[in-house]
Design a binder for these strands. Sequence first.
DNA 1: AGTGAAACGGAGAGAGGTTCCGCATGCCAA
DNA 2: TTGGCATGCGGAACCTCTCTCCGTTTCACT
Lengths: 203, 203
Amino acid sequence: MPTPMPVQQSTSAHTTSPRRRRADAERNRARVLNAARELFAERGAHVSMDEVARRAEVGVGTLYRHFPTKEAMVEAASQQRFGEILTYYRTICRDSTEPLEALKLLLTRIAEVEARDRGFASVVVEGTLGSEGPRSPLRADLEAELVSLVDKGQAAGVIRQDITGADILSLTCGLNSIVHRRSGDWRRYINIVLDGLRSSRER
Amino acid sequence: MPTPMPVQQSTSAHTTSPRRRRADAERNRARVLNAARELFAERGAHVSMDEVARRAEVGVGTLYRHFPTKEAMVEAASQQRFGEILTYYRTICRDSTEPLEALKLLLTRIAEVEARDRGFASVVVEGTLGSEGPRSPLRADLEAELVSLVDKGQAAGVIRQDITGADILSLTCGLNSIVHRRSGDWRRYINIVLDGLRSSRER
DNA sequence: AGTGAAACGGAGAGAGGTTCCGCATGCCAA
DNA sequence: TTGGCATGCGGAACCTCTCTCCGTTTCACT
């Protein structure tokens, strides 16, 4: 390991960074992230690093100075999507809405974003399928919201007891599959899932 | 295209082949399939072709003479699993059992096999997620059984009308996710899915 | 045994991710 | 303003993995 002080926070937005970055580095990081977001959204996470570098008009080396691996870059590129979904959820439906209705709105939003952004879709699936690795901050936030939503629903007696918040993320795998195989049908799928989640006395 | 007569049926068991294969070729094909099945089951589909060739004690070239791509080989290796599941289903529960109960047995069996065979699990997910490409024969058979099972359940009024057999395969994506993240919890997941599938008058 | 077709092995082409290092550039102090 | 230098940059090179190609070997049939 030649570098004595590796960049730890390269994938996060970091409010208080230990050492300020140079202006050109900051600019390049933004260019890379934009290029990545565009390409991954349009064509999925299989787009090559060379291509991202070309669209960002930087060398591949620059990509790896800002993100340790391609996977981290894909993850970072979809952070904004998690952010959008969280913002929507927190402003629209967290407090005012009945839990099952809120869950429906949230799942619908996730499906809509997955339909628009193939890179995000694969991050959701991989992150749920792949067992190890640290969760990105906003993804963790979203999972936390789901957990508390499920808790609330269970306390109110409208969601069955034998389920956890983490289950919901697993259910989005199937959602993702439907979004990309038969666009449009996913509203039906959400209804099926919600009917399954209801507590028996609500049925 | 140099080869005038490419091997069409390389992934199937072919009962009536147009031209007989040499004995050594037949033997090597079996060795390769065995090696592939073992390695993919143990460690997943990311195992390299070199490694499969090494375990089968053949050269990589031989792998590609029997299977056009790695993907085809993974698919072929999991055909046996689809076969096992189909046999189980046809002998145990297709005719004699009530549709929802049969569906439960079938989903349970799929989960059990996925838990044992990581390669099979990824074939189920990829095949469901990936939109294009021809389905392998036994996979298609399994999907057909699911379709007729759903039809039967709908005719009997125990399965909701707004669902198709293909939806079930999508639901197995989430199943797969749970099988590999929290082994054991998938029985709970199956109950949730089944409750969602029930027609409303049954609840 | 002899012959031709079928099958084999494995080097290497090609593609994609990742690293490395000499050069360029922004930043700060004098 | 300029000189010093840490920081950042580009892209050739490297590694690994899939897949192809072709000289050699093996089988099957006479």
